[in-house]
């Protein structure tokens, strides 16, 4: 179904296609080393560095037996010499069967998919989309809760600029989630995302306190609050500690509740949470490899 189809935006996949990828990912989790892509070359073009995402893709490709070529940031590629994105993509498509790309500009991946004869997987285009993150988040939620339907999901931190939060919220609207939005006033979820929730006849509740929502939820999705998002540094100092999750705050949480985070974490989850069995963020990162294995193999038509 997904054969040769680029993955640029999470909206490119229907709910059924998303669930199919999650099913395939489950098979890879049970049996991660399957050298079914022996005859394939996967290119990872990172026009800006993102070590975590790149390693996850390269690990997925390697476990499938594919060869990996690419560059880790544009300084080490011909982009620095002034080559256009189109020329880079057309050239690399001669050397590979699939291109994974990360690029600092919004819309770059969609454009690449228009010019490329081989499928593109978007590993982040500026502030726009990062669909493999959304899929691995869905996989982690489904795995820990046994379902994606009718869950209580809390997002904490920078909900205004967090691309991860926007995409996951929109995706979870397909699964009748109820949203608990916890952020400083200046970093609230944008109105177009809230409108999408309303259009789907779903509910959201907004909070400025982290502790209030914790007993009601199935998933606590933490994000980082970045200093550069604040025009007033005093305001940043005021809020930065209000959204730190500490172990004792999880006392009243539901048994099934799990803490997710797209990583890297700075200080928004205290280290004493790591030992709590509700902490799921490292396992979530591991899940990313299975989901990317599922994507590589289905887009190349092997699964």
């Amino acid at each position: 179904m997904m054969k040769s189809k680029s993955l640029i935006s999470i909206y490119d996949y229907s709910k059924e296609e998303q669930l199919q990828i999650l099913d395939i990912a489950e098979h890879f989790e049970a049996n991660p080393v399957q050298t079914i892509l022996n005859d394939y070359v996967v290119a990872t073009l990172f026009f800006e560095p993102s070590t975590r995402t790149r390693l996850s893709f390269e690990s997925a490709a390697n476990r499938l037996g594919a060869r990996v070529i690419g560059f880790t940031d544009s300084a080490s590629s011909s982009v620095k010499k002034g080559e256009s994105l189109k020329d880079t993509i057309l050239t690399v498509s001669n050397y590979s069967d699939l291109i994974v790309m990360r690029h600092p500009q919004d819309g770059s991946a969609r454009y690449a998919s228009e010019v490329s004869p081989v499928p593109i997987i978007n590993a982040g285009d500026g502030a726009n989309q990062h669909p493999t993150q959304t899929l691995l988040d869905l996989y982690s939620i489904k795995k820990t809760q046994g379902t994606l339907e009718n869950l209580q999901i809390a997002f904490v931190g920078d909900l205004k600029y967090g691309r991860t939060v926007h995409s996951l919220t929109m995706a979870l609207c397909n699964y009748k989630a109820t949203f608990h939005l916890i952020s400083p006033t200046e970093l609230k979820l944008p109105s177009y995302v809230k409108q999408h929730i309303k259009d789907n006849k779903l509910e959201y509740h907004q909070y400025t306190e982290l502790t209030e929502a914790i007993p009601k939820i199935d998933i606590l999705y933490m994000t980082r609050i970045q200093r550069e998002r604040f025009s007033d540094p005093i305001e940043y100092e005021r809020v930065k500690n209000a959204y730190i999750l500490r172990n004792e705050m999880l006392m009243n949480a539901r048994d099934n509740m799990k803490v997710l985070h797209p990583l890297p974490r700075v200080n928004e989850i205290a280290e004493d949470v790591d030992a709590n069995d509700k902490a799921y963020y490292f396992k979530q990162a591991e899940n990313g490899v299975y989901v990317r294995q599922a994507l590589l193999s289905s887009i190349l038509g092997v699964k």
């Binding site: 600092p104 500009q105 919004d106 819309g107 454009y111 285009d125 500026g126 502030a127």
Partner: peptide, 28 residues
């Protein structure tokens, strides 16, 4: 930060609301 403002690419939009006229960029 849209790619169409950084490389020589023809812009493409979908008209989301014909009354208000909101254009959604195909790329970003």
């Amino acid at each position: 930060n849209c790619i169409t403002n950084n490389e020589s690419i023809i812009t493409k939009f979908t008209v989301l609301d014909k009354d208000v006229i909101n254009l959604q960029c195909k790329y970003c």
